[in-house]
Design a protein around this nucleic acid. Structure first.
Lengths: 334, 334
DNA sequence: TTGAAAGCGCTAACAA
DNA sequence: TTGTTAGCGCTTTCAA
């Protein structure tokens, strides 16, 4: 029952003009007589004509859609991070009347950007190759949440070093001297930077860095558990912990409470992310908020500007995270 | 600095074959000699060739992307409902290796489905016209969350009548006789059905329906406030309230508490949605959970089956919501 | 202000 | 098994 699609030719025939004229009307080219314009518009309305986008794109080489490429890790659609990005990108696309082409990538196979006017890489873990290829093709693109020094690519990222500094400084400010950290996966930039910020702050504040206070984690709850167990078994356990993610912070709180210790009285714990799921916990989690939504929005705006030819200099945008104070941190006991 | 794109012709030249043969290799057509296949694959890899999707689609008439059309109401990207749908659709697309074209519609302008292999309408408020047009074009489509009787279209929806019945029966089961409701916008199907289910249950249970116990709302917090104020000023105020959304239920709880009354001791309140933001409230909200994520997933699966030619009978799928018991309901005081 | 004609990059008969 | 050729539906010169 598929009806034959209405094409530009049908419109032209009905309006009694050439397809070129129809094309001009569709694209708002001014050089069309009022008379013809009206005839064409009537025909378009009557036939309910909608231009074939594939044909338009093929012929013009233009494309008004934004590609959002995300690595398809398990749990992607259950992750706060991903959903925030999608929300932000979606919101911006809505405002700018762009279509959003959402592409889940396995990280290895090259991204076919031919269906996209510009590309946003939502995250690059180990697959800079994909980005490089898109760059080589000359397709406008921007990387979210990674500071990319070695590639001449636009990026917009959160300052993880600064975030970690804010967190650590806050703990120091509360009077803590024995501060531990559970890192994220230090192979990811975020993980590494959060550790860097932690270390730098302690150094700056003249607090000795102890190896046994640094647990190399991987963002998983399980490692947070091991970390806390290890910390608590030390003869000099820390009085505060900076966890590189809220998830880990929550698990840490749980373990501490299982040991009949109190948060924050016995141990202060600060997280990173401002993940709303932290609000379900037994105690309000003090944490570092990242402007994910805003970052995603900005990425679209910037991309759009590039596509429109309004920008040429590569964007190197770094946004600042900030502190969200709730109940999981206080001064140390004496 | 935009390099000339690699086309199928470049590949053909390098491999020393015709473009047809290249096309065959790309599309896994078996009738290609091993020898040529290898040559083509080498060329593709070496030139990093990626077929132009616009051209493929134009030539073949096929399209492996799913369109998700959502009405662009303010707050869309802050709404639990929308995000759940996006998550579900996205998840299914990932599994099926489909691209997701996300299109925010103003509800009036026709949807250009030429960029989509199939279309999912995430919601249709007043704009059945859009759906009708897509149907006329013969593009496979499915409507989410609306039971559409008057159009021969696939749909997958939640049984709102049943949801309301479950809620109301639960209140009746707890011993309530004076049960009020704050409806959603009854111009929406969900709003109307939730009211219907409420009424039907009371009738079935032999409880008199009182007009003053039905407040026609619009899902807004403001109307929930008015509703509760009105209910409480009755000489015989209700002992239980069924609110057609969690948002309204939360506001209702707030108003009740402002009046120095207790939930659920003085008034039981049940919501609808299972919106996680309800978890932030002062008291766990008993509510009706809708399988939004699943609904969205199923929609994609079904659409895919249609596009693949595996389905012909129109789908009329209705999913059941279920009760989530938390703390906001109890038996009435004597 | 208009239209004819040449593609855009690919697929799909059809012939060889 | 391969290649030739004619489109897919549109935009864009170019000439009129």
């Amino acid at each position: 029952m598929v009806k034959k699609r209405i094409s530009i030719e049908d419109v032209a025939r009905r309006a009694g003009v050439s397809i070129t004229t129809v094309s001009r009307v569709i694209n708002n080219v001014p050089t069309v007589s009022k008379q013809n314009r009206i005839k064409v518009e009537e025909a378009v309305a009557h036939l309910k004509f909608k231009p074939n986008l594939a044909a338009q794109r093929l012929a013009s080489g233009l494309n008004n859609s934004v590609g959002l490429v995300m690595p398809g890790y398990p749990g992607l659609f259950h992750s706060f991070y991903a959903i925030e990005l999608i929300r932000g990108v979606g919101h911006a696309c809505e405002t700018l009347h762009l279509d959003l082409v959402f592409h889940i990538s396995d990280g290895n196979s090259p991204v076919n950007t031919n269906a996209m006017g510009g590309v946003i890489f939502a995250d690059i873990i180990e697959n800079k190759k994909q980005v490089q290829e898109v760059l080589e093709e000359g397709v406008p693109c921007i990387v979210i949440n990674n500071i990319v020094e070695d590639l001449d690519v636009n990026y917009i990222a959160v300052d993880n070093i600064k975030g970690a500094k804010i967190a650590t400084e806050y703990l120091v400010g509360l009077g803590h001297k024995r501060i531990a950290t559970i890192t994220g996966n230090v192979n990811t930039q975020a993980g590494a930077h959060r550790l860097d910020g932690f270390k730098e702050t302690l150094e700056k504040k003249g607090i000795t860095l102890r190896d046994e206070y640094i647990y190399k984690g991987d963002y998983s709850r399980r490692c947070a558990r091991s970390a806390v167990e290890e910390f608590l078994s030390l003869k000099n356990p820390p009085t505060a912990i900076f966890a590189a993610s809220d998830d880990m912070a929550l698990e840490a709180i749980e373990v501490v409470m299982e040991k009949r210790l109190k948060v924050p009285q016995d141990i202060s714990i600060i997280g990173f992310d401002d993940n709303p799921s932290a609000l379900y916990g037994p105690i309000g989690l003090t944490t570092i908020r990242q402007p994910l939504f805003k970052m995603a929005e900005e990425a679209v705006r910037y991309l759009n500007a590039i596509v429109a030819g309004k920008k040429t200099t590569p964007a190197k945008i770094i946004l600042s995270p900030d502190l969200v104070t709730r109940e999981s941190c206080s001064g140390p006991k004496h």
